[in-house]
Structure formats: C-alpha cells, structure tokens
C-alpha cells in the first residue's frame, strides 16, 4: 500500500524478477495510460519509466536473482477531486538502501549504465523512494499528471 493513497489499487500486477516479463508490464501500463488520455509518446515514456524502475529492482534489489517478487499497484487518479493522471507504486522484497543515496549520475560522463534513475525522474512528475516496513524491500511511488492538450501544446 502506498504511503499516501489508501484506496485499493485499480490494477495490481505481481511479477517475478525475470527480465523477460518486463514486456508485459510495459504493455499493461501503456494500455492504461492510453485509456486515461495520455498521448502516444507519453504512454511510451511512462512504460519506459516503469521498465527502468523494474530493471533497477531486478538488478540492484534482487542482485539479478530471478525468483524475487515485485508488485506494481496502479491508480488512475482524477475520478474525484484529485488531479487526473496515474499513480504507480512498485514494491519488492529485495535489499534496502537509504533513499537519499538513490540519485541520477552525472550525464556529462559518457559511460554505460546508471541512466535508469535519471530517465524515471525526467519522465515522471514525482518520484519517491521509501524503505518498506519490516526491514526488507523498497517502495517507489511514481506520479504522472495528465496535462490537458491545450496546456501541453502551449508549453
């Protein structure tokens, strides 16, 4: 359960930490984002952000073990008074790190790897990491606001 959203998720996905299933998570979130009203490029980028977040869990949280569990909870916001958009919460039971140490690397340094956090931060409107209760696993809370087309084209 997210630290801020206490309603039941509209969609719940559980996958193992096996990279071959990333495609399924991408397809799912793209379809939901499209139905909410995000344009095609935004849908693709939201899928990329989710993919990067799951990759980080698989590589760092589970150290490339393929039998770890990852939960993705999705809320489509905007049905009531809140801002239209998507909230995605990703939880795992892997290793814990201090959220303050999770940051994007220096992009001036051209080297392979370390781009995932930067990509997530660039795409999503808010990104928050937390340690899960009980001493195991991390929780990542992502929000993406649906920008009305008029506002999007004006910016």
């Amino acid at each position: 359960m997210s630290g801020e959203n206490h309603s039941e998720p509209h969609v719940k996905l559980q996958i193992t930490s096996q990279p071959r299933y990333l495609c399924g998570a991408r397809e799912l979130i793209q379809a939901i984002a499209k139905r909410i009203g995000f344009d095609e490029m935004s849908c693709s980028q939201i899928a990329l952000a989710l993919d990067e977040a799951l990759c980080n869990v698989m590589r760092h949280g589970y150290q490339e073990r393929t039998d770890g569990l990852i939960w993705v909870d999705i809320w489509a916001t905007g049905d009531e008074d809140d801002v239209p958009g998507l909230t995605i919460v990703i939880e795992d039971e892997g290793g814990q790190v201090d959220p303050a140490t999770i940051r994007s690397r220096d992009l001036d340094e051209v080297r392979p790897g370390g781009l995932g956090v930067h990509i997530i931060q660039q795409i999503m409107d808010s990104v928050r990491y937390e340690k899960r209760e009980g001493g195991r696993g991390m929780r990542l809370i992502l929000n993406k606001r649906l920008v009305p087309q008029v506002e999007a084209s004006a910016s």
Binding site: R26, L48, E52, V110, R111, P112, L115, I119
Partner: peptide
Amino acid sequence: YMDSSGVATLVE
C-alpha cells in the same frame, strides 16, 4: 523499443 540497458550496450 529500447530501455537504458540497450542504450548502455550502444555506449559500450
């Protein structure tokens, strides 16, 4: 579709 692991492969 390409994610950062693909990009990292091309950087390498």
